[in-house]
Simulated scan of single mutants.
Amino acid sequence: MRTEVVSEPGAPDRPNEDFAGVGLPASGQGGCLIVLDGVTPPRDGTGCLHSVPWFTARLGGALTELTVSRGDLTLREILEQAIGRTAAAHRDTCDLSHPRTPQATVVLSRWSEEAVEFLVLSDSALLLRSPDGTVTPVLDDRLDRVPRASLASDAIADATVRNREGGFFTAAADPTVAARAVTGTVPRAEVRALAALTDGATRWTEKFRAGDWTALLDVVAKEGARALVDRVRELEAADREARVFLRRSKTHDDATVVYAEL
């Protein structure tokens, strides 16, 4: 089995808000991968004493432990319990009802000798490659379907579409959001490799249109996860002045790639 993890902050003077992890149980018969993309907080605060990296570290740690040790739980149940644990860690000190309480997108996958399970919540991505080379993206596209006017400002988004019916969902302080995740299971024999990526890495395909999902996974498999992040940085730098592709997005975003060949 080959695994590779690369996670790079968008700027050297700003903490990386992503979380990346690979879990390989002692049995050697399965494993898991986890990627979280922490949501950058607004300038006027989140009602929380803790940073987004604190939150993603707590949530990512809980997800890793539960995914490896609790094979009896579904991935939705694992996410539900992990959110609950993390919320309990700061409920007494923070306002968890604040719409911008620390939160993150989630990609979670677990494999055994028989099956590959997956869960995606919000706009990070999971790519599955079959033995014949076909690449299937697993996406939660609800954010893409939100009317652009609803995202005109943080205040509008928070009041109308963030973690609301008809909008989009992230892992924050409400464990029931786990039921909103995109989930599925495929036979292990149908998956040769998989990759989880935050939207800072999927920019190569989704914003810059430098190649489709198959081409993106080819870069990771043949040149390494670092090569994909380097290509994204080059495209970001070239677009800095024109802002043709990035528009209102950050010039550089945290970029994380977790890759596994089964």
Score class of each variant (00 low, 15 high):
26 A>T: 15
60 G>R: 03
103 Q>Y: 00
140 D>S: 10
177 V>A: 04
194 L>R: 15
235 L>S: 05
237 A>R: 06
209 R>Q: 13
134 T>G: 04
224 G>I: 07
160 T>I: 00
152 A>I: 15
181 A>T: 12
198 T>G: 09
72 D>K: 08
210 A>L: 14
87 A>R: 15
210 A>G: 10
11 A>M: 12
95 D>L: 11
217 L>K: 11
194 L>M: 15
117 E>G: 10
42 P>L: 02
258 V>T: 05
155 A>P: 13
212 D>H: 03
97 S>L: 14
133 G>P: 10
161 V>T: 14
7 S>D: 02
151 L>V: 09
71 G>K: 05
173 A>S: 15
74 T>D: 01
149 A>G: 08
151 L>G: 07
205 T>W: 01
158 D>R: 13
245 F>V: 10
105 T>G: 13
255 A>N: 09
58 R>Q: 14
131 P>M: 04
60 G>A: 05
135 V>R: 12
69 S>W: 00
14 R>K: 15
179 A>T: 10
143 L>S: 13
21 G>L: 06
261 E>G: 03
135 V>I: 06
191 V>F: 00
261 E>F: 01
17 E>D: 13
54 W>V: 12
243 R>I: 05
159 A>S: 13
213 W>S: 09
152 A>C: 12
196 A>H: 04
246 L>V: 13
162 R>E: 06
67 T>D: 00
246 L>H: 05
81 Q>R: 12
224 G>S: 03
190 E>P: 04
150 S>M: 09
241 E>Y: 03
188 R>T: 15
234 E>W: 01
134 T>H: 08
53 P>R: 14
243 R>P: 09
67 T>P: 00
35 V>A: 11
140 D>W: 07
61 G>C: 05
173 A>D: 11
222 K>R: 15
49 L>I: 12
53 P>H: 09
12 P>W: 00
254 D>N: 11
183 T>D: 01
45 G>R: 14
33 L>F: 03
115 A>I: 15
30 G>K: 06
201 A>L: 08
118 F>P: 02
112 S>C: 04
13 D>I: 01
170 T>A: 14
49 L>S: 11
29 Q>C: 09
230 D>T: 10
42 P>A: 03
51 S>Y: 02
202 T>V: 02
85 R>M: 08
174 D>Q: 10
29 Q>K: 14
82 A>N: 02
14 R>M: 10
92 D>C: 06
109 S>Q: 07
170 T>S: 15
233 R>W: 03
99 P>W: 00
247 R>L: 09
181 A>I: 13
213 W>I: 05
240 R>S: 14
66 L>E: 05
12 P>T: 00
154 D>R: 12
126 L>C: 07
179 A>D: 03
96 L>H: 01
71 G>Y: 04
106 V>L: 05
80 E>W: 02
225 A>Q: 04
259 Y>P: 14
168 F>C: 08
212 D>A: 11
46 T>S: 15
232 V>L: 03
216 L>K: 07
24 L>N: 03
81 Q>G: 05
184 G>E: 02
153 S>A: 08
